[in-house]
């Protein structure tokens, strides 16, 4: 089983709200004091891939489209024991839209070649549009299963198929799928990303990472560099959260409870 796992490096979504920063044009989050981390759903996807490989064997290639700094994300994937890593260097728009990203990743997947399964996270922790996985499938002409939290390989040789469990609003869907295909991964209690061993972190620092330019993977580089051909961000704001405290009074406990209930009703009605 050859797996390509797409990983995105994002601004740490867990920094305190006070530390969030938006650029002067109000279209971009800027780094400020935030660190760069791997998107958590991408790590869930990598963990799912690693577990699948433990059972079936095969090769995992970590693929990222991003700035030079995305090398850290790929090194971490190597430390978690992905076999190879490919970085498509983004020297254009810092946050290209999902259509553009999918175009680039699909082109890279084609260039990598033999592949049974393309995996992405369900969505990213920065923009959260949740489109890239489906669009990659569209680009590659492959079926796509979204919100998957578990994959098992069944059968051998030409009978080989994948048993896929996907989360829905009402529960799960269990699907039998024929590779090659694209899946987007969501989290569950079994795909919490493993902590890499220090020994493997040390090894990963010396492993090669394949780097391709946009020209090398055969996409329209100018269009990709422009980044937002399908939609445009016009305004970005940090939601303001007002916290206020009110004391409900009353002489007896019953009265207090009644006043409290009254207040709750008033507040919820006004919302």
């Amino acid at each position: 089983m050859n797996i390509i796992i797409c990983l995105k490096q994002i601004l740490d979504p867990e920094i305190p709200v006070r530390d969030f920063r938006i650029g002067p044009d109000k279209r971009e989050a800027v780094r400020g004091n935030a660190n760069l981390v791997t998107n958590i759903f991408c790590e869930n996807a990598l963990e799912t891939a690693l577990q699948l490989r433990e059972r079936t064997g095969g090769k995992i290639t970590a693929l990222a489209f991003g700035a030079e700094s995305a090398e850290d994300t790929l090194r971490k994937a190597l430390a978690m024991k992905a076999d190879e890593a490919v970085l498509v260097l983004n020297d254009g728009h810092p946050h290209p839209d999902p259509f553009t990203v999918a175009q680039v990743l699909a082109a890279a997947v084609r260039k990598i070649g033999a592949c049974d399964l393309v995996m992405t996270g369900r969505e990213s922790g920065d923009w959260g549009s949740g489109q890239t996985g489906g669009l990659i499938a569209e680009e590659l002409g492959l079926p796509c299963i979204s919100f998957v939290d578990h994959i098992e390989a069944r059968g051998e040789g030409t009978d080989a198929s994948l048993f896929v469990k996907r989360q829905t609003d009402n529960g799960w869907e269990l699907l039998n799928a024929q590779p090659p295909l694209v899946v987007t991964i969501t989290n569950n209690e079994f795909n919490v990303p493993r902590i890499p061993k220090t020994r493997d972190i040390m090894i990963s620092a010396r492993q090669p990472i394949t780097k391709w330019t946009l020209e090398e993977i055969g996409v329209n580089a100018a269009e990709v560099r422009a980044g937002q051909s399908y939609y445009e961000v016009v305004d970005l704001a940090i939601p303001a959260k007002d916290v206020a405290c009110q004391f409900v009074s009353g002489d007896t406990l019953e009265q207090k409870v009644e006043n409290l209930a009254q207040r709750v009703i008033e507040v919820t009605r006004s919302l």
């Binding site: 867990e14 660190n35 981390v37």
Partner: peptide
């Protein structure tokens, strides 16, 4: 990733 051990703190 954050240089401090308190995950989820909202303080800076």
């Amino acid at each position: 990733s954050r240089g401090h051990p308190f995950r989820g703190t909202q303080s800076t």
